[in-house]
Computed example of a mutant assay.
Amino acid sequence: MTTGVLFDGRVEDVLLGDEVHVAGPTVLSISNGGGLEGARLEIGARTYVGEFNNIRCAGAPIIIGPDCLVSQQCTLVGSNHGTRANELVREQPWHGDGIVIGRDVWIGAGATILPGARIGDGAVIASRSVVRGEVPALAIMAGAPARQVSARINTR
């Protein structure tokens, strides 16, 4: 990691592969709470995480594969608060099962990756997109909510 990274959590809940670069200022919050106790962050080898990112496990795992690019100003959040009307939002239990990002994924600037996202190998997430649910391998996704607009193709 580099300087300017704000880290909140237990070091033993973080696994960084070889040659990982996290540019600062970036927030890495690997905390439990809201009734969830599974916070952990794994970032695969040779992955680059740009500046001004907000990565919050929030009681759930966030796993980023090897050889990925996470551009600047992205938000990755592993869980959400409940939204029942009869309770204050801040007092409701958290829910969510984290995020899994495959290998060789490019996440464009300002993208938001929500709890439950499963992004397949080789996918591209366009700038400012909002991703939830499954993203197929090699898909190019754009929009809010993100939809598949194209796919990476082999040119050899």
Rank of each mutant, 00 (worst) to 15 (best):
T2L: 12
F7M: 09
G9H: 10
G9W: 00
R10V: 07
E12Q: 14
V14A: 07
V22I: 15
P25Q: 12
V27I: 11
G33T: 03
G33S: 03
L36M: 10
L36T: 11
E37N: 14
E37Q: 15
G38Q: 15
R40P: 00
L41W: 13
I43W: 04
A45S: 14
A45P: 00
G50S: 08
E51F: 06
N54E: 10
A58S: 13
A60G: 04
A60D: 05
P61F: 05
P61C: 09
I62H: 07
I63P: 01
I64A: 04
I64V: 07
G65H: 05
G65Q: 02
P66Q: 12
P66H: 14
P66T: 10
V70H: 00
S71Q: 01
T75E: 13
S79P: 07
N80P: 06
N80F: 13
G82Q: 04
T83N: 09
E91V: 02
P93I: 02
G96A: 09
G96M: 11
G98W: 10
I99P: 03
V100C: 12
R103I: 01
D104T: 00
D104H: 13
V105E: 03
W106T: 04
W106Y: 03
I107N: 03
G108D: 02
A109C: 11
T112Q: 07
T112G: 02
I113E: 00
I113Y: 01
A117V: 08
I119V: 15
I119D: 07
I119T: 11
G120L: 00
D121E: 11
V124K: 03
S127M: 15
R132C: 06
G133C: 09
V135M: 12
V135E: 06
L138R: 01
A139M: 02
I140L: 12
M141S: 11
G143Y: 06
A146M: 03
Q148L: 01
V149S: 09
A151Y: 04
A151E: 14
A151D: 10
I153K: 12
N154C: 12
N154K: 14
